[in-house]
Amino acid sequence: MDDIDAIDRRILDLLQRDGRISNADLAAKVNLSASACHRRVRRLEDDGIIRDYVALLDRKRVGRPTMVFVEITLSGQADEVLDAFEKAVRVIPDVLECHLMSGAADYLLKVVASDTEDFARIHRQYLAKLPGVAQMHSSFALRTVFRTTALPV
């Protein structure tokens, strides 16, 4: 981030909030010519700072309104146990995120479901079969107070 200036930061901020903004509109908002803006965006992409462009879906409108956070404690910390768990959890379609944690749990999963019965299905079909799991605790999100995908730049 050392070679990113204030204009790059503004570009990144704007693109995080509206990834479909045209290059002309983006250039106008950061006071650059369209070609100079395009070069900067291309450099940010080439440097891996801009990783992807995605469409963020409304999970309620696509039938996945239930958000569940699952804390998982493994039976051991050997590389084989961690690797087997991580390989298996990657293929569960309902898991949006998996984080290796410090603290009480080894992993924290972010899971979406259509309702509690659907989560029970996900649990039976996938979560209960994950290798190396000693304990699992699930917490249902009652309401999302705040959510963003934009990183402060």
Rank of each mutant, 00 (worst) to 15 (best):
I92V: 13
E86C: 14
A105S: 15
H123P: 01
V62D: 02
T73V: 10
A105I: 12
V62S: 03
L109G: 11
F69C: 04
L82V: 06
K87V: 13
V95M: 08
D79G: 09
L82P: 08
G63M: 05
K129L: 15
I92F: 12
A113V: 06
P93A: 02
M67F: 12
E71I: 04
S114L: 00
F85E: 01
D52V: 07
A84W: 05
E117P: 01
S102C: 07
V112E: 14
L56N: 07
V62H: 02
Y53W: 06
E80V: 07
A88Q: 09
L57C: 02
R59H: 07
R59M: 08
A84H: 06
T66V: 05
K129S: 14
V68K: 10
E80L: 06
F69K: 02
R124M: 13
T116H: 13
R121Q: 05
Y126P: 10
A105C: 12
V81M: 09
G103R: 03
M101S: 09
P93W: 02
V54L: 12
V95E: 06
A78N: 02
D52P: 02
M67Y: 12
L100G: 13
L57R: 05
L100F: 14
L100R: 15
D58V: 00
K87Q: 07
D58A: 00
L57G: 03
V111R: 01
I92W: 10
V95S: 06
G103L: 04
H123L: 07
A84L: 03
R124K: 13
Y126R: 11
M101C: 12
G76M: 00
A78Q: 02
A105G: 12
G63Y: 04
L109W: 10
